[in-house]
Design a protein around this nucleic acid. Structure first.
Length: 836
RNA sequence: GCGGGUGUGGCGGAAUGGUAGACGCCGGGGACUUAAAAUCCCCUGAUCUUUGAUCGUGCGGGUUCGAGUCCCGCCACCCGCACCA
């Protein structure tokens, strides 16, 4: 260690050990201090920490360290979302056990995280594949079962033929498996479900209170829950049956000219039983693609069943079609067609020559106005609708619902897009569902004293499918109730279950139960939850649901687990390709003048778009290599600089070099500290006090890029100043302000200044409010709103004085050029604007 | 189509309706050095007739003494959702 250079390779590890040995970041639940729970979404142990993790955790780390400096007891834990398919895929490809693969990844990634110096409480670390953790999860699942929140039903599932597993609706993207990309098939299986729909209303209304969540995420969840209200009612059919339909526009009922049912609607199936043309049509419907582009262009197709439906008011007989645009899964799987006021119905009616009537108009006088070439969805008054004529859309909706309910042929209902959460997975590497199937007793929960139901180790992945299913002995057990021969459930829980309550286990981890409600109450809700926006719907909705469900069954007194959510942007990097579709990694190319060439043989390379770092594009930069070269603090600083945290951050070599230079620049500044210096430098002292306040405000608002800029400014000012007491104060301020971001450098300098305590334990510097105000200000002088001059005036100068000073300016007089002054606007301490 | 977001120098980006471009990167010039690295200093939105002026925050209007910021109407790009009745 020399005075002129800070050496991260020696200092980083030394301070990391010091924090570890002192237990600096171990959270004390019994502390009297105000508590802060700072959490970043825990990683899946895929193998390596990537830059996205580093950025995510650097943000949380600054918050955690800052809160600690502000006198809070901080809980900032870390663990591993360790169940999941990649481990099984690795098992198949590399012939390693999923557990061994996962454990070794955890070990490596933990070492990587430690090298970055995060202020984490490692005493609370766990992996979701620990039997202790998933055993408690099984216990909670059994509790939910007892409370009626878990049920089984035979249902058609999305079957991924490659991964050999069931997928949740959310895991099916454009009809393909989210991981394998394989075309998803439909299969009927007995499945386990969680009743998330019981909480639909609550999950929706709760969003309104999440003021510190991004608007975007709340809207996405709102759309996902998809509440709509309308009328469900039945048509009498010509074959004697009834057809139930759902509509959000009962006010347009007089505009109905046909009915349409889904291809897999029971009535459609019945028609198909005796009609081969109907069979062919239904087949065709099922073949249709489900991608956005296909749906956009897909023609509305229908098949006339020959059945008619009787209009409840007019008695008109309306044809019933099987139609390709009606979904069995939503509403009743059948709709009334109102072509005048629904675009899909309009297209359908145009093709199949159905009546297109106007029943809503801008004004009663427009009742006879012809329809245009598309449906009219707008508001207006009801026309051509008998007793509804002249009513507003809203009034007519209410009136029709009332008449239906009075007449007993329908009722006002709420329909949700949200479905119950199918949690069965035909997979090995997950939490075993703790139930036993007995021929005599049915489905029986595993007694709690027999938990955890652990995964067997001796499994093979040579054949596709679920290893638990074909294990020789694992599933064969005695029934806990009758003692007869029975079989274990071989499905495991969806991995999203594991991440639905891990934040509770971090806060409280007793051995004998999942968590302690009183301990939870000390920490929850999480004050800052930080992670990627890709979890906006699934993980965050499921976690909100679990928290509510556990509160509902009396395990908790918390409803919303995450008070504030922050979704950070991605780390991006330029891409390099040879132009033939193959990608090159950043360390295979170099810059040759303005162009890029390969290092190996100088072949020209195309520099492509700046996109998220990904293995497939090979534009990945490994944090370990960067830390080796520049040290942890430079990487942390880069992750926080420049881009606002919610936006993407483009990685660049010159950027990290700049950060590393700044580390050394700070080191030189800290070394210029002269304990014997005397005298005041009021301007510098003022800047330091202002920075103390501004950086704190910026960090609290998660404006890390702005905090960084202010630290640069204060650093620059301190560097230029001559030695003085004020300069020393400014240096100490910079040291403290930068310590959450560059903790290693800060500790090293803090020790060098003679402290034998850790700066991590130090308090945020105090500021003097009197020092925040300047005593001189620069006043802008404008003529007609255009800047003409600036003057320096004492802070708080009188308006008249400022006006006089402004008019005395030669530049201003030249600009006015003798014109009549009509008005002078004076904004104290800001500007003077002369209007002529 | 619906919903949300974003548009400011060569780049990332600052700016309670009040001096647009803070801060960083890149680039240019200089100092130190035998030389290099490191470091330090200066310049760096555009244009012009350059001690100064004009233009300039996606485009077109408006409100205002004053608009990147507020209002109206557009455009482009990004993200999410989607035959959801």
């Amino acid at each position: 260690m020399t005075d002129n250079r800070f050496d991260p390779s020696s200092a980083d590890g030394r301070w990391q050990r010091a924090w570890n040995d002192a237990g600096t970041f171990t959270a004390d639940s019994n502390s009297e201090k105000p508590k802060s729970y700072i959490l970043e979404m825990f990683p899946y142990p895929s193998g390596r920490i990537h830059m996205g993790h580093v950025r995510n955790y650097a943000m949380g780390d600054v918050l955690a360290r800052y809160k600690k400096m502000r006198g809070h007891e901080v809980l900032h834990p870390m663990g591993w979302d360790a169940f999941g398919m990649p481990a099984e895929n690795a098992a198949m490809e590399k012939k390693v056990h999923p557990g061994a693969w996962t454990r070794s990844n955890i070990e490596g990634m933990k070492a990587q995280l430690k090298r970055i110096g995060f202020a984490l409480d490692w005493t609370r670390e766990f992996a979701t594949c620990d039997p202790e953790y998933y055993g408690h999860e099984q216990s909670l699942f059994i509790d939910m079962y007892a409370a009626g929140l878990v049920y089984r039903k035979s249902s058609e599932v999305n079957w991924d033929p490659v991964d050999m597993t069931v997928l949740a609706n959310e895991q099916v993207i454009d009809g393909k498996g989210w991981r394998s990309g394989a075309e998803v098939e439909k299969r009927k299986l007995d499945q386990w479900f969680l009743k998330i729909t019981d909480f639909a209303e609550d999950l929706l209304s709760g969003l309104g209170e999440l003021k510190d969540w991004p608007e975007k995420v709340r809207v996405m969840q709102e759309n996902w829950i998809g509440k709509s209200s309308g009328l469900e009612f039945s048509f009498d059919l010509s074959n004697g049956e009834k057809l139930s339909v759902y509509t959000t526009r009962p006010d347009t009922i007089f505009g109905a000219s046909f009915c349409a049912i889904a291809a897999d609607h029971p009535i459609a199936q019945a028609v198909a039983a005796s009609n081969s043309e109907a069979v062919a049509f239904i087949e065709e419907c099922k073949r249709g693609g489900t991608t956005a582009a296909e749906l956009e262009t897909a023609e509305k197709l229908g098949f006339d069943t020959g059945i008619t439906a009787r209009h409840p008011f007019t008695g008109e007989a309306m044809p019933v079609f099987i139609a390709n645009f009606v979904l069995m899964e939503y509403g009743t799987g059948a709709v009334m067609g109102v072509p005048g006021h629904d675009q899909r119905d309009f297209e359908f009616a145009t093709k199949y020559k159905q009546r297109i009537a106007r029943v809503v108009a801008s004004d009663v006088s427009q009742a006879g106005a012809p329809m245009g070439d598309e449906a009219e969805g707008g508001d207006g008054v009801i026309v051509n609708s008998d007793f509804l004529d002249g009513m507003s859309v809203e009034d007519a909706k209410a009136d029709v619902i009332k008449r239906a309910e009075t007449g007993g042929w329908g009722e006002g209902t709420t329909v949700w897009r949200l479905r119950d959460w199918g949690i069965s997975r035909q997979r090995y590497w997950g939490t075993p569902i703790p139930f036993i199937h007995c021929d005599t007793c049915g489905v029986v929960p595993v007694p709690k004293d027999q938990l955890p139901v652990t995964l067997p180790d001796d499994v093979d992945f040579e054949t596709p499918g679920n290893p638990l299913e074909r294990h020789a002995t694992w599933k064969h057990v005695d029934c806990p109730e009758c003692g007869g021969k029975a079989q274990r459930e071989t499905d495991t829980l969806d991995t999203f279950t594991n991440s639905s309550w891990y934040f509770l286990r971090f806060a409280s981890q007793p051995a004998d139960k999942p968590f302690d409600a009183e301990e939870i109450a000390k920490w929850l809700p999480v004050q800052h939850y930080i992670g990627g926006v890709e979890h906006a719907i699934l993980h965050l909705l499921y976690a909100r649901f679990w928290t509510r469900a556990l509160a509902h069954i009396g395990k908790l007194d918390v409803k919303e687990p995450f008070a504030a959510l922050f979704t950070q942007g991605m780390v991006t990097h330029e891409t390099y390709s040879l132009g033939d579709g193959s990608w090159l990694s950043p360390d295979e190319v170099r810059k040759d003048g303005q162009d890029w060439v390969t290092i190996e043989n100088g072949v020209p390379v195309e520099a492509g778009r700046v996109v998220k770092m990904s293995k497939s594009k090979k534009n990945v930069v490994d944090p370990d290599n960067i830390i080796d070269e520049y040290g942890a603090d430079a990487v942390r600083w880069f992750m926080l600089s420049d881009s606002p945290p919610e936006r993407d951050l483009p990685w660049s070599v010159s950027g990290i070099e700049g950060c590393a230079r700044f580390v050394q620049r700070l080191w030189r500044l800290f070394n210029s500290y002269d304990a014997n210096a005397a005298g005041e430098d009021k301007a510098l002292a003022r800047k330091a006090h202002q920075a103390i306040v501004a950086v704190a405000d910026d960090i609290e608002a998660l404006g890390f890029n702005k905090a960084v800029a202010r630290i640069y400014e204060l650093t620059g000012a301190a560097e230029k100043a001559a030695p003085s007491e004020s300069k020393n104060f400014a240096i100490r301020a910079v040291l403290h302000l930068v310590s959450p971001m560059m903790p290693h450098l800060a500790e090293e300098a803090y020790a060098k200044l003679g402290h034998d305590t850790l700066i991590a334990d130090a308090a945020w510097p105090e500021h003097d409010p009197a020092m925040l105000v300047e005593d001189e200000v620069t006043i802008a002088i404008q003529h007609m709103g255009k800047l003409r001059d600036t003057i320096t005036a004492p802070k708080g100068a009188a308006k008249d004085d400022l006006e006089a000073l402004a008019l005395a300016s030669e530049k201003v007089q030249r600009s006015i050029d003798g014109a009549d002054i009509r008005k002078v606007i004076v904004v104290p301490d800001r500007l003077v604007n002369i209007v002529t």
